[in-house]
C-alpha cells in the first residue's frame, strides 16, 4: 500500500511555538471561557442573569468596592506620576551615571511583592504607625513606582535633544522648554506609565489586605473572597472578573490609541 498518512510532522520554526500555544489554551483561554460560562449560571447550574443583577445593583457591596478600588488606584497612580516623573526626568537628563540609578529604582522589583509588603507591614508595626488608608497607599506607591518610572524614563531618554535646542533657539526659557516640548513629547510615556500602574493597582488584592489588617477591601480582594470556599458565589465572582477584564482591555485600547498617534508623528 502506498497510502502514507497525509499529516506528517515537520520541524519547522512554527513548531517551536506549539508548547506555548497549548499552554495558553489550557491556562488562559479555557479558564476565561469557564469564567464567562460561570457568570451566566446560578448555583443550580441554570442559565441566569441574576449574577449581573446582583453585582450591578450593589447588593453585596461589589460596586462600592469597585468604586473604592478605582479611587485608590487613581490616587496611587497620581502619586506615582508626581514622584516618578521628576525622577525619570533627571535620570534621563543626566544619563551619564544613570544606569546605576535606574537599577536602584528597579531593584525593589527583584524582591517578591508579598515579602516586600509583609516586611513593610513589619516596619510599620515596629514604628507604631496605625495601619489604614495611609499605609495601604504607601504600600501601593512603593510597589508600583518602578512601573511608572521605567516607561517614563524610556520615553524621556528617546526625546531628540534637537527639539529642546530648537525650543531654546526660538526663545523658550528652561520652564517653557519643559512645558511646551518635553512634557507633550513624553505623553506616550505618561500614558503607558499610568496604565502600567493603574491596572495592577485596581486589581491588587494582597497589599490592601496586609497593610490595613483586612480593614480596607479592594476589588481584587472582593474577587478573591467570592472564589474562596466559604462564600462560594462563583457567579458574582465571575461577573466581577469580567468587569476587571473589561477595564484592563479599555486601558490597553487607550494606550494603543495614543501610541499609534505617536508612531504616525514619528514617521
Amino acid at each position: 500500500m502506498k497510502n502514507k498518512p497525509k499529516f506528517k510532522f515537520r520541524l519547522t520554526r512554527r513548531a517551536f511555538a506549539y508548547p506555548y500555544m497549548i499552554f495558553m489554551l489550557l491556562f488562559v483561554v479555557v479558564p476565561l471561557v469557564i469564567i464567562l460560562i460561570n457568570a451566566f449560571l446560578d448555583d443550580n447550574k441554570q442559565f441566569t442573569f441574576q449574577n449581573f443583577v446582583e453585582f450591578f445593583s450593589d447588593a453585596g457591596g461589589g460596586l462600592t468596592v469597585l468604586g473604592n478600588s478605582l479611587v485608590i488606584g487613581l490616587v496611587t497612580t497620581l502619586i506615582c506620576l508626581v514622584i516618578g516623573y521628576p525622577v525619570a526626568y533627571f535620570l534621563a537628563k543626566y544619563h551619564a551615571s544613570s544606569r546605576v540609578f535606574v537599577l536602584l529604582f528597579i531593584l525593589p522589583m527583584w524582591v517578591n511583592f508579598l515579602i516586600r509588603t509583609l516586611s513593610t507591614k513589619a516596619l510599620f508595626m515596629q514604628l507604631n504607625v496605625p495601619l489604614g488608608m495611609g499605609t495601604v497607599l504607601f504600600g501601593m506607591v512603593y510597589n508600583y513606582l518602578p512601573y511608572m518610572i521605567l516607561p517614563l524614563h524610556t520615553t524621556l531618554v528617546s526625546i531628540d535633544h534637537s527639539y529642546i535646542e530648537a525650543a531654546e533657539d526660538l526663545g523658550a526659557d528652561k520652564m517653557t522648554v519643559f512645558l511646551k516640548t518635553v512634557l507633550p513629547l513624553s505623553l506616550s510615556g505618561i500614558v503607558s506609565g499610568v496604565t502600567m500602574t493603574f491596572i495592577p493597582a485596581i486589581s491588587t488584592f494582597a497589599i490592601s489586605e496586609i497593610l490595613s489588617s483586612s480593614k480596607i477591601f479592594l476589588f481584587g480582594d472582593a474577587i478573591n473572597m467570592h472564589f474562596s470556599k466559604t462564600t462560594n458565589s462563583l457567579g458574582v465572582g465571575s461577573v466581577m472578573s469580567l468587569v476587571m477584564l473589561l477595564l484592563v482591555i479599555l486601558s490597553n485600547v487607550a494606550v494603543n490609541l495614543t501610541s499609534k498617534d505617536e508612531e504616525v508623528s514619528a514617521l
Partner: peptide
C-alpha cells in the same frame, strides 16, 4: 548668554520640527 536671549535663530540639520 543662553540661546533664548539671543536674537539669532537656527535652521537645524534634521529640521527638528516639533512632532506634536
Amino acid at each position: 548668554l543662553p540661546p533664548h536671549k539671543r536674537n539669532i535663530n537656527t535652521v537645524f540639520q534634521k529640521y527638528a520640527l516639533f512632532p506634536h
